[in-house]
């Protein structure tokens, strides 16, 4: 395997980490008013992700940084073409970020309710934004020969991209509910489990749909394998959930995300960013990659950096492994 292909895989891996991890913390925010009926319950929900959401978000930052370093043209074209959707996405991430930290800082009902609204809305907007841009990247955006967008500010929004937006949002809802069933105890746990089971057929349908669209548009015979894995794992996850095995359901959803990412990036290859105007304008793994010296340097950094990240982030989840119930929450 040559270095550009390796870095294409690294970026897919970073997306996998991001979708798996921030997927459930988006989901928790998206379900905040649904599963959190009282202020204490909402605090239980927020505290399941309190120590980890920021570390989860860094996966996106590193995915962005790695794309910049390994495929500058990809980073430049995708980000500039998606300008307005990304502004909205950024505003949502800013809102979410401060909301978790600021929510409990003033003891007032109105104050906390306002931040609850920010968490709820921004989690939805961010999940939709991620799905939109990621799917547009895979199914293609109108690019000219220089790599600039052809068309207006919303040129990246296609029906496929909108379907992808629904897919990520729907997945985040289910993933978040399963995570909550795994991380809470008592009434919330039961409600989260029931919600996940009930919502799964509807919420995961767009994911299956968008993967099929991608498969028929760009996939190969090989990408059928991860695609089928997604469907099987998602179905099994619901089955395990019915048997009260939240841990297994969560792990199966993890495999499903991996399958989805492999389907998407496997179909994308050998392009990194296809042009819908003219295939000749598409950016490719070989064409958009940085020099082999830069990729070698980055490979060394990733070789030592990535395992370390996995170890200490894993340790964080171990430290905060205890289920949270309303009885754990201190009085404000």
């Amino acid at each position: 395997m040559n270095l550009p292909v390796l870095w294409f895989c690294v970026i897919a891996l970073l997306w996998l980490g991001y979708l798996f991890l921030e997927g459930f913390d988006f989901g928790v925010g998206m379900l905040l008013p649904v599963l959190g009926r009282t202020d204490t319950e909402r605090r239980v929900l927020i505290n399941t992700i309190g120590p980890v959401w920021d570390g989860n978000e860094v996966w996106l930052l590193v995915a962005g940084g790695a794309t910049f370093a390994a495929f500058p043209g990809w980073y430049a074209s995708l980000f500039s073409a998606s300008y307005l959707p990304l502004v909205l996405f950024l505003v949502a991430l800013i809102g979410r970020g401060v909301a978790f930290e600021y929510r409990g800082k003033i003891d007032s009902h109105r104050w906390r309710r306002s931040w609850d609204t920010v968490i709820f809305l921004s989690s939805w907007v961010a999940a939709i934004g991620v799905g939109l841009v990621l799917t547009a990247n895979v199914t293609g955006i109108p690019l000219d020969a220089h790599g600039d967008r052809v068309g207006g500010p919303l040129a990246i929004v296609s029906w496929q991209a909108l379907l992808g937006a629904l897919a990520v949002a729907g997945f985040a809802v289910v993933h978040g509910a399963v995570f909550l069933a795994l991380k809470t105890s008592g009434d919330i746990r039961e409600r989260a489990r029931r919600l996940a089971v009930k919502a799964a057929p509807f919420a995961l349908a767009p994911l299956a749909a968008v993967l099929l669209v991608v498969q028929f548009q760009r996939g190969s015979a090989l990408t059928w394998i991860p695609l089928l894995l997604v469907v099987v794992c998602a179905a099994l996850a619901v089955h395990r959930l019915l048997a009260d095995r939240e841990g297994q359901a969560f792990a199966l959803l993890g495999v499903a995300v991996a399958g989805a990412v492999v389907t998407l990036f496997g179909s994308l290859y050998p392009d990194v960013l296809p042009s819908t105007v003219d295939p000749a304008n598409s950016l490719t793994v070989a064409g958009a990659a940085s020099s082999s010296y830069t990729l070698t340097v980055m490979s060394w950094v990733a070789l030592f950096g990535t395992p370390a990240v996995l170890v200490y982030q894993g340790w964080t989840y171990w430290v905060f492994r205890k289920r949270i119930a309303t009885t754990h929450i201190p009085v404000a």
Binding site: V58, L61, V62, G64, G65, A66, T67, F68, A69, A70, F71, P72, G73, Y75, A76, S290, S291, T294, V297, M298, V301, G305
Partner: peptide, 12 residues
């Protein structure tokens, strides 16, 4: 990109 992205990615 060939130069500037590397320190940003390393930072992350």
């Amino acid at each position: 990109g060939d130069v500037f992205g590397a320190p940003l990615a390393m930072e992350g």
